[in-house]
Protein backbone atom coordinates (compact mmCIF):
# COMPACT_ATOMS: atom_id res chain seq x y z
CA UNK A 1 0.00 0.00 0.00
CA UNK A 2 1.19 3.61 -0.62
CA UNK A 3 2.79 5.92 1.98
CA UNK A 4 0.70 7.22 4.92
CA UNK A 5 0.13 10.69 3.43
CA UNK A 6 -1.63 9.05 0.45
CA UNK A 7 -4.01 7.31 2.79
CA UNK A 8 -7.63 8.39 2.99
CA UNK A 9 -8.15 6.53 6.21
CA UNK A 10 -5.78 5.12 8.81
CA UNK A 11 -6.80 3.14 11.87
CA UNK A 12 -4.19 2.34 14.50
CA UNK A 13 -5.00 -0.26 17.17
CA UNK A 14 -8.66 0.77 17.31
CA UNK A 15 -10.91 -1.04 19.76
CA UNK A 16 -14.59 -0.46 20.43
CA UNK A 17 -17.17 -1.78 22.88
CA UNK A 18 -20.93 -2.11 22.71
CA UNK A 19 -22.47 -0.30 25.66
CA UNK A 20 -24.64 -3.16 26.88
CA UNK A 21 -25.67 -4.19 30.37
CA UNK A 22 -22.26 -5.52 31.41
CA UNK A 23 -20.02 -3.30 33.49
CA UNK A 24 -17.62 -2.66 30.62
CA UNK A 25 -19.84 -3.68 27.70
CA UNK A 26 -18.97 -6.23 25.05
CA UNK A 27 -15.73 -5.85 23.15
CA UNK A 28 -16.79 -5.52 19.51
CA UNK A 29 -13.51 -4.61 17.84
CA UNK A 30 -10.01 -5.32 19.05
CA UNK A 31 -6.80 -3.63 17.91
CA UNK A 32 -7.91 -2.89 14.37
CA UNK A 33 -5.12 -1.38 12.29
CA UNK A 34 -5.64 -0.68 8.62
CA UNK A 35 -4.86 1.89 5.95
CA UNK A 36 -7.06 2.70 2.99
CA UNK A 37 -5.25 4.35 0.03
CA UNK A 38 -7.07 7.26 -1.61
CA UNK A 39 -8.92 6.19 -4.75
CA UNK A 40 -8.75 2.49 -3.96
CA UNK A 41 -11.49 -0.12 -3.72
CA UNK A 42 -11.15 -2.02 -0.46
CA UNK A 43 -13.38 -4.88 0.64
CA UNK A 44 -13.78 -6.16 4.16
CA UNK A 45 -14.92 -9.74 4.36
CA UNK A 46 -15.58 -12.06 7.23
CA UNK A 47 -18.28 -14.16 8.86
CA UNK A 48 -21.41 -12.71 10.48
CA UNK A 49 -20.56 -11.21 13.85
CA UNK A 50 -17.01 -10.33 12.83
CA UNK A 51 -17.72 -6.66 13.48
CA UNK A 52 -17.57 -5.51 9.84
CA UNK A 53 -20.59 -3.20 10.07
CA UNK A 54 -19.48 -2.03 13.53
CA UNK A 55 -16.13 -1.08 12.03
CA UNK A 56 -17.93 1.02 9.40
CA UNK A 57 -19.91 2.77 12.15
CA UNK A 58 -16.71 3.50 14.06
CA UNK A 59 -15.02 4.86 10.93
CA UNK A 60 -17.97 7.19 10.31
CA UNK A 61 -18.00 8.29 13.94
CA UNK A 62 -21.46 6.84 14.67
CA UNK A 63 -19.89 4.75 17.41
CA UNK A 64 -16.94 5.90 19.51
CA UNK A 65 -13.74 3.89 19.67
CA UNK A 66 -12.64 3.00 23.19
CA UNK A 67 -8.94 3.09 22.31
CA UNK A 68 -6.66 3.63 19.35
CA UNK A 69 -6.45 6.38 16.79
CA UNK A 70 -8.32 7.10 13.58
CA UNK A 71 -6.98 9.49 10.95
CA UNK A 72 -9.81 10.54 8.64
CA UNK A 73 -8.47 12.29 5.54
CA UNK A 74 -11.91 12.48 3.98
CA UNK A 75 -14.48 15.25 4.18
CA UNK A 76 -17.50 14.02 2.27
CA UNK A 77 -18.34 10.46 3.30
CA UNK A 78 -21.47 8.75 2.01
CA UNK A 79 -22.92 5.34 2.64
CA UNK A 80 -24.96 2.70 0.85
CA UNK A 81 -26.82 0.40 3.22
CA UNK A 82 -27.61 -3.30 3.12
CA UNK A 83 -31.31 -2.60 3.75
CA UNK A 84 -31.29 0.45 1.44
CA UNK A 85 -32.33 2.83 4.29
CA UNK A 86 -34.31 5.04 1.92
CA UNK A 87 -36.69 7.51 3.52
CA UNK A 88 -40.14 6.04 2.80
CA UNK A 89 -41.89 9.41 2.91
CA UNK A 90 -39.78 10.82 0.08
CA UNK A 91 -39.91 10.08 -3.66
CA UNK A 92 -36.83 8.62 -5.36
CA UNK A 93 -35.87 12.13 -6.53
CA UNK A 94 -36.25 13.63 -3.06
CA UNK A 95 -34.32 10.75 -1.49
CA UNK A 96 -31.42 11.39 -3.84
CA UNK A 97 -31.63 15.14 -3.20
CA UNK A 98 -31.86 14.73 0.60
CA UNK A 99 -28.16 15.22 1.36
CA UNK A 100 -28.00 18.25 -0.94
CA UNK A 101 -31.06 19.73 0.75
CA UNK A 102 -29.38 19.33 4.13
CA UNK A 103 -26.29 21.05 2.70
CA UNK A 104 -28.40 24.04 1.71
CA UNK A 105 -28.26 23.52 -2.07
CA UNK A 106 -31.14 25.47 -3.73
CA UNK A 107 -34.12 23.41 -4.87
CA UNK A 108 -33.60 23.73 -8.65
CA UNK A 109 -29.92 22.89 -8.41
CA UNK A 110 -30.38 19.90 -6.13
CA UNK A 111 -33.17 18.51 -8.31
CA UNK A 112 -30.97 18.87 -11.38
CA UNK A 113 -28.15 16.98 -9.66
CA UNK A 114 -30.55 14.34 -8.30
CA UNK A 115 -32.02 13.74 -11.78
CA UNK A 116 -28.51 13.41 -13.17
CA UNK A 117 -27.59 10.80 -10.53
CA UNK A 118 -30.82 8.86 -11.06
CA UNK A 119 -30.01 8.80 -14.77
CA UNK A 120 -26.52 7.49 -14.01
CA UNK A 121 -27.98 4.53 -12.13
CA UNK A 122 -30.62 3.91 -14.80
CA UNK A 123 -33.67 5.09 -12.88
CA UNK A 124 -34.47 8.44 -14.50
CA UNK A 125 -37.99 7.25 -15.29
CA UNK A 126 -38.79 6.44 -11.67
CA UNK A 127 -38.01 9.77 -10.01
CA UNK A 128 -41.55 10.27 -8.70
CA UNK A 129 -41.89 6.78 -7.27
CA UNK A 130 -41.76 6.17 -3.55
CA UNK A 131 -39.45 3.44 -2.19
CA UNK A 132 -42.40 1.14 -1.45
CA UNK A 133 -43.16 1.01 -5.19
CA UNK A 134 -39.59 0.03 -6.14
CA UNK A 135 -37.96 -3.40 -6.29
CA UNK A 136 -34.94 -4.23 -4.12
CA UNK A 137 -32.51 -3.58 -6.97
CA UNK A 138 -34.16 -0.27 -7.79
CA UNK A 139 -34.06 0.79 -4.14
CA UNK A 140 -30.37 -0.03 -3.94
CA UNK A 141 -29.76 2.04 -7.08
CA UNK A 142 -31.61 4.97 -5.51
CA UNK A 143 -29.42 4.46 -2.42
CA UNK A 144 -26.33 4.56 -4.63
CA UNK A 145 -27.58 7.69 -6.43
CA UNK A 146 -28.26 9.34 -3.06
CA UNK A 147 -24.67 8.67 -2.04
CA UNK A 148 -23.23 9.85 -5.37
CA UNK A 149 -25.20 13.11 -5.19
CA UNK A 150 -22.88 14.21 -2.39
CA UNK A 151 -19.80 13.70 -4.63
CA UNK A 152 -18.27 11.64 -1.83
CA UNK A 153 -14.55 11.17 -1.38
CA UNK A 154 -15.27 8.03 0.67
CA UNK A 155 -18.14 5.72 -0.22
CA UNK A 156 -18.88 3.09 2.39
CA UNK A 157 -21.03 0.20 1.26
CA UNK A 158 -22.41 -2.21 3.82
CA UNK A 159 -23.17 -5.50 2.07
CA UNK A 160 -24.92 -3.70 -0.80
CA UNK A 161 -25.62 -6.85 -2.80
CA UNK A 162 -26.72 -9.22 -0.07
CA UNK A 163 -30.46 -8.55 -0.45
CA UNK A 164 -30.41 -8.68 -4.24
CA UNK A 165 -30.87 -11.54 -6.68
CA UNK A 166 -27.88 -12.65 -8.76
CA UNK A 167 -28.89 -10.90 -11.99
CA UNK A 168 -29.58 -7.60 -10.25
CA UNK A 169 -26.40 -7.74 -8.20
CA UNK A 170 -24.30 -8.53 -11.31
CA UNK A 171 -25.62 -5.50 -13.17
CA UNK A 172 -25.24 -3.29 -10.09
CA UNK A 173 -21.64 -4.47 -9.67
CA UNK A 174 -20.87 -3.54 -13.29
CA UNK A 175 -22.42 -0.10 -12.77
CA UNK A 176 -20.56 0.34 -9.50
CA UNK A 177 -17.21 -0.31 -11.16
CA UNK A 178 -18.07 2.14 -13.93
CA UNK A 179 -19.06 4.78 -11.36
CA UNK A 180 -15.91 4.14 -9.30
CA UNK A 181 -13.72 4.67 -12.36
CA UNK A 182 -15.65 7.83 -13.33
CA UNK A 183 -15.63 9.44 -9.89
CA UNK A 184 -12.24 8.24 -8.67
CA UNK A 185 -13.55 8.02 -5.11
CA UNK A 186 -12.39 5.59 -2.44
CA UNK A 187 -14.76 2.72 -1.82
CA UNK A 188 -14.79 0.69 1.38
CA UNK A 189 -17.19 -2.19 1.01
CA UNK A 190 -18.30 -4.76 3.55
CA UNK A 191 -18.94 -8.01 1.80
CA UNK A 192 -19.27 -11.68 2.58
CA UNK A 193 -18.76 -13.11 -0.89
CA UNK A 194 -15.16 -13.91 -1.80
CA UNK A 195 -15.64 -13.83 -5.63
CA UNK A 196 -17.32 -10.41 -5.38
CA UNK A 197 -14.49 -9.07 -3.27
CA UNK A 198 -11.86 -10.34 -5.72
CA UNK A 199 -13.76 -9.04 -8.74
CA UNK A 200 -14.12 -5.53 -7.34
CA UNK A 201 -11.27 -4.82 -4.95
CA UNK A 202 -7.69 -3.62 -4.94
CA UNK A 203 -7.29 -4.80 -1.37
CA UNK A 204 -9.20 -7.27 0.77
CA UNK A 205 -9.25 -7.23 4.55
CA UNK A 206 -10.31 -10.44 6.27
CA UNK A 207 -11.89 -10.15 9.69
CA UNK A 208 -12.83 -12.75 12.29
CA UNK A 209 -15.17 -12.34 15.20
CA UNK A 210 -15.65 -12.32 18.97
CA UNK A 211 -14.10 -9.81 19.24
CA UNK A 212 -13.82 -8.43 15.70
CA UNK A 213 -10.22 -8.28 14.54
CA UNK A 214 -8.26 -8.25 11.32
CA UNK A 215 -6.77 -11.62 10.45
CA UNK A 216 -5.16 -10.88 7.13
CA UNK A 217 -5.00 -8.39 4.26
CA UNK A 218 -4.60 -9.24 0.59
CA UNK A 219 -3.77 -7.15 -2.45
CA UNK A 220 -5.46 -8.24 -5.66
CA UNK A 221 -3.18 -7.61 -8.62
CA UNK A 222 -5.44 -8.99 -11.35
CA UNK A 223 -5.73 -6.58 -14.30
CA UNK A 224 -9.02 -4.71 -14.77
CA UNK A 225 -11.58 -5.34 -16.17
CA UNK A 226 -11.44 -8.67 -14.40
CA UNK A 227 -12.52 -11.82 -16.14
CA UNK A 228 -14.48 -13.69 -13.48
CA UNK A 229 -14.30 -16.91 -15.54
CA UNK A 230 -10.53 -16.96 -15.99
CA UNK A 231 -8.20 -19.51 -14.36
CA UNK A 232 -6.35 -16.64 -12.66
CA UNK A 233 -9.53 -15.41 -11.06
CA UNK A 234 -10.50 -18.87 -9.80
CA UNK A 235 -6.97 -19.37 -8.44
CA UNK A 236 -7.36 -16.16 -6.40
CA UNK A 237 -10.76 -17.31 -5.14
CA UNK A 238 -9.26 -20.67 -4.12
CA UNK A 239 -6.29 -19.10 -2.36
CA UNK A 240 -8.43 -16.65 -0.44
CA UNK A 241 -10.97 -19.33 0.44
CA UNK A 242 -8.18 -21.56 1.75
CA UNK A 243 -6.74 -18.70 3.82
CA UNK A 244 -10.13 -17.88 5.30
CA UNK A 245 -10.76 -21.53 6.06
CA UNK A 246 -7.43 -21.72 7.87
CA UNK A 247 -8.29 -18.61 9.88
CA UNK A 248 -11.73 -19.84 10.93
Amino acid sequence: MPATHDMLLVLSRVSARFADEGEKGTLALKDISLSVPAGSFVSIIGPSGAGKSTLMRVILGFMPQTSGEIVRNFSRPAMVFQNYALFPWLSALDNVAFGLRMSGVPRKERERIAREKLKEVGLAHLENHYPAALSGGQRQRVGLARALALSPDLLIMDEPFSNLDTITSESLKADLLKIWRTYGMTILMVNHLIPDAIELSDHIIVMSGHPGRIEKTFSIDLPRPRDTRSAHFFRHVDLLTEDIRAIS
Binding site: A78, A85, W89, F98, M102
Partner: peptide, 29 residues
Protein backbone atom coordinates in the same frame (compact mmCIF):
# COMPACT_ATOMS: atom_id res chain seq x y z
CA UNK B 1 -36.50 3.47 14.17
CA UNK B 2 -34.25 1.15 12.17
CA UNK B 3 -30.59 1.87 12.95
CA UNK B 4 -29.71 2.07 9.25
CA UNK B 5 -32.40 4.67 8.61
CA UNK B 6 -31.20 6.71 11.55
CA UNK B 7 -27.58 6.43 10.36
CA UNK B 8 -28.65 7.43 6.84
CA UNK B 9 -30.31 10.56 8.23
CA UNK B 10 -27.13 11.41 10.13
CA UNK B 11 -24.70 10.78 7.29
CA UNK B 12 -26.81 12.71 4.79
CA UNK B 13 -26.94 15.73 7.07
CA UNK B 14 -30.08 15.57 9.24
CA UNK B 15 -28.14 16.49 12.37
CA UNK B 16 -28.84 18.82 15.28
CA UNK B 17 -32.26 20.44 15.46
CA UNK B 18 -32.78 19.90 11.72
CA UNK B 19 -33.13 16.22 12.53
CA UNK B 20 -36.59 16.92 13.98
CA UNK B 21 -38.43 18.36 10.95
CA UNK B 22 -36.53 16.42 8.28
CA UNK B 23 -36.28 13.00 9.87
CA UNK B 24 -38.06 12.42 13.18
CA UNK B 25 -41.35 14.13 12.30
CA UNK B 26 -41.94 12.37 8.96
CA UNK B 27 -40.62 9.11 10.42
CA UNK B 28 -43.25 9.18 13.16
CA UNK B 29 -46.19 10.22 10.97
Amino acid sequence: AHKDLSDAATIFGARGLRRIPYFLAPLSF
